[in-house]
């Protein structure tokens, strides 16, 4: 009961913040996919959905091309000079896990998920176009030797990937923005796109 009251309060705080700050980015609604659309989800549409998620800061921030993790919707460099380190997990002593645990910390606002780390540098996406990102994603030489099947599993089951839809609160207790496609629709889009052989539209 008390916890519920607390959560309600947090929720109202968040709502207040969103309304008060008139933050368009935060208010960006999910691209809702209707039943008919879902049934008729085209490969192109699925691809767009997948890429809309991958391009979002919740995903992109940990796929840097300069070895520096990013933070926030403005994708600023991680404070205090944190960097990739040897195994994508920070420096030898001060590493991701010094602050990031296996789940979000609601007291500190430090996000967390299992095996919190940067994507390997071969999977750096920042600054790349959609099709370039897709190419890196599909290429076993850059994606860590993953087959399409393994990619689907990774993208729909890995807890660190799915953290994007459970991003917790920031240092001020404000809910982080989620990607513009719901978790469920993202999974469907991933499956659809790979079912069709993961074609990259030529534009």
């Amino acid at each position: 009961m008390n916890r519920t009251a607390f959560l309600l309060f947090i929720f109202s705080l968040v709502a207040f913040y969103l309304i008060g700050s008139n933050n368009e980015a935060s208010l960006e609604a999910y691209e809702v996919i209707s039943e008919e659309q879902r049934d008729s989800l085209t490969t192109e549409r699925a691809y767009e959905q997948v890429m809309n998620v991958l391009m979002h800061p919740r995903c992109m921030n940990c796929h840097p091309t300069d070895d520096v993790p990013k933070q926030g919707m403005d994708r600023h460099p991680h404070y205090f000079g944190m960097s990739r380190g040897k195994e994508n997990k920070g420096f030898s002593v001060t590493k991701c896990a010094t602050c990031h645990q296996e789940e979000n910390n609601l007291n500190s606002g430090v996000p967390g998920a299992p095996h919190w780390s940067l994507a390997p540098s071969s999977m750096g996406w920042q600054g790349l176009s959609r099709s370039e990102i897709a190419q890196r994603l599909l290429n076993p030489e850059t994606n860590g030797g993953k087959s399409h099947e393994e990619l689907v599993t990774h993208m729909t089951e890995d807890e660190l990937v799915l953290w994007a839809w459970n991003p917790g609160v920031d240092a001020n207790g404000v809910q982080r923005e989620k990607p513009p496609v719901s978790e469920e629709d993202f999974k469907k889009a991933v499956e659809k796109w790979f079912d069709e052989g993961a074609p990259i539209p030529s534009k």
């Binding site: 404070y79 010094t98 645990q101 910390n105 500190s108 430090v110």
Partner: peptide, 24 residues
């Protein structure tokens, strides 16, 4: 700071440095 930003709360858990204000 309570936000894992300053490091004043650093201690070791199983020999690894962690910031204990952000460690459940």
């Amino acid at each position: 700071c309570g936000k894992a930003a300053c490091g004043a709360c650093t201690l070791h858990v199983d020999g690894e440095a962690v910031r204990s204000c952000s460690y459940a």
